[in-house]
């Protein structure tokens, strides 16, 4: 049962900001509701006010602009999955969006809600971080950009202030010579991730690795983990299987899975991270070489 509350349906972002400035602490924004309503049913949150973001036209879009993509906060996963633009130019986002939830959930769930919910096992954040995504945050004091990995500060904790909301997610277009891969392990086809890995490999013309991102999610720490070790080990090198395998082992040392997860033990997550990171890197490398991601 949901608690009694008052409901608002603003049509502009500035209305939301004004409302939050006044009632931020007692308010919950609602987008798809797939996380919030579950929490409310369990009595975990009891907002006095509910502000629906879904009727605000300026929050829902997928726009290519400059060197990247702007995804409005209330864009649903289904819209991302079905966007031709994303499928062709940002296959990593397509793969991660598709791996998420079920058709019904993807019809409802939004990218903004997913990020703000900050579940360590969420699927799209690792892909976004691998593409150096930034959150465009708006509030009373104006707007600010935050790299997504800094946006997540703990299990279901974000850097958002109570008077702020996410307006957009900005994603850089992968540079020429890039290949990406998203891999997820769950117990069944539609399960929260036991482990997920998003990888981007960008190669120089001479075949050396110019830039790499290895991002691991699935409850391997309070937030997803962007592996710095992988970047140090691989950037500037010619990528070959032994080096990739070694990197995968190093990445696994950065992970700190919780022992309380019912999905798998820390041991399992660490063991399998070695496998998934290796496979994702190999796959991304292959794609980079084949020029599949542009």
């Amino acid at each position: 049962m949901l608690n009694d509350l008052e409901y608002f349906e603003p049509e502009t972002i500035s209305d939301v900001i004004t409302f939050l400035a006044k009632h931020g602490k007692d308010t919950k924004l609602i987008a798809g509701g797939t996380d919030l309503l579950v929490d409310m049913k369990k009595g975990k949150v009891k907002p006095k006010y509910l502000v629906n973001l879904m009727k605000i036209p300026e929050l829902s879009h997928i726009i290519e602009d400059g060197g990247g993509l702007r995804i409005g906060a209330t864009t649903t996963f289904r819209e991302i999955e079905e966007s031709k633009l994303i499928k062709e130019k940002y296959p990593l986002l397509f793969e991660a969006a598709r791996a998420m939830g079920t058709v019904q959930i993807r019809n409802m769930a939004t990218i903004g809600g997913n990020i703000c919910n900050a579940l360590p096992s969420a699927d799209i954040p690792p892909a976004l971080v691998a593409l150096d995504a930034k959150a465009k945050i708006v509030g009373q004091s104006g707007e600010r950009f935050l790299p997504l990995e800094e946006f997540f500060v703990g299990i279901r904790k974000t850097a958002l202030e109570s008077d702020e909301l996410i307006r957009e997610v900005h994603v850089k277009s992968p540079p020429a010579g890039s290949g990406t891969a998203f891999l997820k392990i769950g117990r069944t086809a539609s399960d929260l991730a036991t482990l997920n890995v998003a990888v981007r490999v960008t190669l120089e013309n001479n075949g050396a690795c110019k830039e790499v991102r290895v991002v691991v999610g699935g409850g391997v720490g309070p937030t997803l983990i962007r592996s710095k070790r992988a970047e140090t080990l691989l950037e500037g090198k010619i990528l070959e299987e032994p080096l990739i395998e070694k990197t995968a082992r190093e990445v696994s040392k950065e992970l700190k899975p919780r022992p309380t997860s019912i999905r798998a033990s820390p041991f399992y997550k660490i063991e399998v991270s070695k496998v998934l990171v290796k496979r994702a890197l190999m796959k991304a490398l292959g794609r980079a070489k084949a020029g599949e991601d542009r």
Binding site: T188, A189, L192, I262
Partner: peptide
């Protein structure tokens, strides 16, 4: 089923107790 050391069921939902759906 997962139980904690107090005998509580830790996964009383279809999200945590996984039965097959069509793709499986």
């Amino acid at each position: 089923f997962f139980f904690d050391d107090k005998g509580r069921v830790l996964n009383p939902s279809f999200g945590d107790y996984k039965i097959f759906s069509a793709p499986d």
